[in-house]
Design a protein around this nucleic acid. Sequence first.
DNA 1: TATATTTATACACACGTGTGAAAAAACCAG
DNA 2: CTGGTTTTTTCACACGTGTGTATAAATATA
Lengths: 384, 384
Amino acid sequence: MAGFLSVAGLSSVLRPALKLCNLNMRSHSKSREKRVTIKDIAKVAGVTHGTVSRALNDSPLVKVETAKRIKRIAKRMGYRPDRIAQSLKRRRTKTIGLIIPDILNPFFATITHGVEEKATELGYHVILVNTNRDLVREASEIKLLCERKVDGLVICPISYGSAKHLRRFKNESPFILLGSNMPGLVVDYVVSDDVQGAYLATTHLIDLGHRRIAHISDPSNTSPAESRTTGYKKALLERKIRVEENLVVPGGANIDSGYNAAGKLFEMPDPPTAIFAANDLTAIGVLALAKERNISVPEELAVVGYDDIEIAKYVEPPLTTVAQDKRRLGRLAVQLLCDKLNSQEETDIHQIVVQPTLVVRASSRTASKSVLNLSKVTVESPSS
Amino acid sequence: MAGFLSVAGLSSVLRPALKLCNLNMRSHSKSREKRVTIKDIAKVAGVTHGTVSRALNDSPLVKVETAKRIKRIAKRMGYRPDRIAQSLKRRRTKTIGLIIPDILNPFFATITHGVEEKATELGYHVILVNTNRDLVREASEIKLLCERKVDGLVICPISYGSAKHLRRFKNESPFILLGSNMPGLVVDYVVSDDVQGAYLATTHLIDLGHRRIAHISDPSNTSPAESRTTGYKKALLERKIRVEENLVVPGGANIDSGYNAAGKLFEMPDPPTAIFAANDLTAIGVLALAKERNISVPEELAVVGYDDIEIAKYVEPPLTTVAQDKRRLGRLAVQLLCDKLNSQEETDIHQIVVQPTLVVRASSRTASKSVLNLSKVTVESPSS
DNA sequence: TATATTTATACACACGTGTGAAAAAACCAG
DNA sequence: CTGGTTTTTTCACACGTGTGTATAAATATA
């Protein structure tokens, strides 16, 4: 005992620690070793687990000297907190759920990137759920994630039909809608100004001299789908061009749908000279069919997409498209969500609308023509 | 009161339930309502929470009649289990961690798709971690996921350097390597036969008459990177073509790296007539530069990629590539992992090697030439 | 020295669920 | 009705952590 006092603190650390090591070694030789808990540390340090808990959480209630000693012991014993137990007690899991319809779509992959990145920065983990556009699954997963006590949810809704589930789980976990909002549901969301984006795209085509401009719409029942069609029509109306409903055909968020929709348009007696697709993948499908039919783009047909996914610039010809900063959208959503989590004020809601920009590439512009003067337009040269 | 009794059994359910509803209503009017726990159910049902727990888990220790009654009450009260508390007690979270280097690469996005899909089927949730190829982050995240008590991990390693961390956490959570294995580390993995894939690709180019075949390698220190270079050289050696080390230039898993690497190759006094890129994105970069320099593909330069990501078929010209069933790889990894979790035998390890196939498209074949007769080769017509 | 005041630690309960073992209830044979 | 057997429920503790309060120790004040 007397010896202890001389080295003050250190000795009392080392000896019992070694003792406990031996205790642990007694477990089934090759099998998994038992986890070190704060109780084990307490035993070694000669204090109660309560004190250890406080020490590790830097509570001012424990003497700094003791705290240091306990932390040393904890480190030496290889202590690592059990996040599950913490979650149960602290009533937050530091986890958010991300629900997206289709991870294979680069649009959502990039959003996921932004979400994961920001979440990590803020100390959260992301549970990823890919619904494959299944509304039933979306609902059941929201439920499951709530049971799992995620602190919040970022949801990219599939359709207005989601509103029903959302309303139901509103009080369970706070959530942010991403990419699409819900009419009649007062919630936080981060969206892009899709009306404006579609308006820019269509106006661009009109400026190039096109009058028969088709639109391959997104048939999903969501706000971006609706808004893009709205923006398209708005541009036409504003320029006194008649909106022909048969020039608006439904597509989908994949390449095949564009291919098929283009087929219908090409078959028309008086086919369009330009196509505005609600989605880059759809637009790529259009390009694929155009090539197959030897329809030269942009000379015989101008094509504009939406989203500016990475490959848009590498398809042939490079695709003019409306760019959304998808990564930023994801980051914003998480930021918003976590702000909400950290402020008890449940009252004020935030709704962020991000402005898209038009990126002009070769699919809507012959090599010679150029010099556009629209605001919010980026013109990319192929060699930049 | 009397009316209730006639319905035998229902009455005892309804009345106390309503009572409790009132109790809950007393919370701050608009704020979050208190969760229903098994104790609440117990109070209403007039039993202990232990019995409720057993009833809800279909334990044979509770009378079926009682169990039914309890379940009815639970449903009526809107009970939903607290998965965190369950996890703490049951010692498993029904969660797996997925660690990937780059979600923006469609290759990993598709793997993620497969992993999430299979995990859902088996009742697991997936925590997604995107490391951005940061080895330090990979290590710290493995640690964090272990603290979170994920039941297992699926890891797409960034480099052999990962082995260090992996060894360290081997006893914490079981894991499966996906896409790349680790020499000197005896663990379960699911990989593709990359030597064979690269061999197929290179042989294909040789069969087309090419002799100066460059290889844009993946400079990462991983088994697929190594193996693809190995397969490339193996094919050359087998056909008695000298391996020129300066025809092997490093790339990376993105478009720019291919663009840059192609630049170096084109600059050579005696440039290659064919390029085998270790990655589709890299190959797409090659195509981009070739177009810029007016080098026609495949006439002046044949290009072959690896992975067969979705857009490979839509770039110009459509890209010949080595196809891996990425979704299947992801599903297999999860299947393997969960098998491991459900069998206590920690002894036997499983190592699955999936065979890739060559998909021939226009980037390595002129429209006229065709009729190849290699086994494991798919020839896609542009219109299929 | 005794008392008030501050500081540090111990104690005990809590989070929501699961479970072995004791206790109670129901059933059965004599 | 007794004693034994089986079925059903209760009791009490556990998982690993956090935290309010009581208690003990150290320090300051009178």
